[in-house]
Design a protein around this nucleic acid. Sequence first.
DNA 1: AACAATACTGATACTGAGTACCATTTGACA
DNA 2: TGTCAAATGGTACTCAGTATCAGTATTGTT
Lengths: 214, 214
Amino acid sequence: MASVSSAADRSLPLRERKKLRTRRALADAALRMFTEKGFDATTLEELVDEVEVSKSTFFRTFPAKEAAAIEAEVELWSANLTALRDHTLSGVILTEMKDILCGVVTGLDADWPDRYVATRRLVLTAPTLMAYAAHHRADIQQQTGDLLADKLNLPLGDLRPQVLAELTTTAWTIAARAWVRTGGQGGRQSLLESVEHAFQTIPASLELSAQTER
Amino acid sequence: MASVSSAADRSLPLRERKKLRTRRALADAALRMFTEKGFDATTLEELVDEVEVSKSTFFRTFPAKEAAAIEAEVELWSANLTALRDHTLSGVILTEMKDILCGVVTGLDADWPDRYVATRRLVLTAPTLMAYAAHHRADIQQQTGDLLADKLNLPLGDLRPQVLAELTTTAWTIAARAWVRTGGQGGRQSLLESVEHAFQTIPASLELSAQTER
DNA sequence: AACAATACTGATACTGAGTACCATTTGACA
DNA sequence: TGTCAAATGGTACTCAGTATCAGTATTGTT
């Protein structure tokens, strides 16, 4: 389980390193400024002035203003897709999905948990951001489902890989929501416990009944 | 199970009827024009000219250009929330959720299935629409989860209502996707069968394993 | 049936995100 | 060092979305 993305990766061509640096700088500034001033109140011009790049460069790096704000989210799911791709599945898939996801969380940069908490809190403040994050999640889900179907050699009509992909993101979303609500206290470890708990809650939810419950 | 929304509802004050009429006209024109010319290629001006209202009126009716395109989706979930609110839960909740949803589908306008198919197909063509639809889904999920927690008197930390809400929209999304892919053939009836199937697939997915499967 | 009070519409002017285009600079590589 | 490719910055543009206000239609009251 190698650490995938660190800030200054030698061995990468200089040009690529520069691009990565501005990408990182833009994402950091975006998270900070949007949190301080509000997403709508911060114009793109202010953002690019801060980082000292042009608007052109911004849109060559990110497809939208919103994208710069949810980099931490993107990092998580890109890494997860890669991990799933490189993993040989065996046993109960949903459990495997949970383990892969937990492995990814463990492998991310040291500053990732803080950035993720800040990101999720920010997302709650602006509907536009909410929409963008939801879209990203749907996108990831689709890709995960397709990848699963491929890895398991399942026919096109089989709904199970899509369902599994959705269950995975569902479990994550719910676990993360609870963890973020605590301010990310307990760090990575408590997040992992929250994820375990959420995955366990799925079968428990299926059986939930009224009457007997009150 | 009363039919909720028909085009010209008497007994409503004139002012409200007019608003509903323009809303309907805008949504219809939007669906048609976006499908014909493409979402991005159709400007808001063209749309409001067609319906002969001002841009001002458009934005008092819909919060965004995208919203006019997904009215069929909004109608479905608004009706579902209302139905859930008015329903007394008993027995296995997930089954109840399925039944309520199926009841809502049965109760919608005669032209709803066609409009829904057109909507979903349109959504696939424009990322902006995709994002907006995903956002709407997330919004509905949240409200459904909160409503469930309230109706079942569950404490704030309990993840199960949120999971159930997500499972419900998940099942719907997957069922609808399959149904739309067939062009909505078989109409409402085959959609309902697809929904049944998707709900059954959820427990089946939990147990899916590798090895034994290939 | 006339009259406030109130809600809705339309027009205008504005902000800011995102795109298209081109001239300039910078890194890659022989 | 020189040449090619690729990234950058600047300018001008389109269009969604907001704010404001004057005019018009609807409601409910007397």
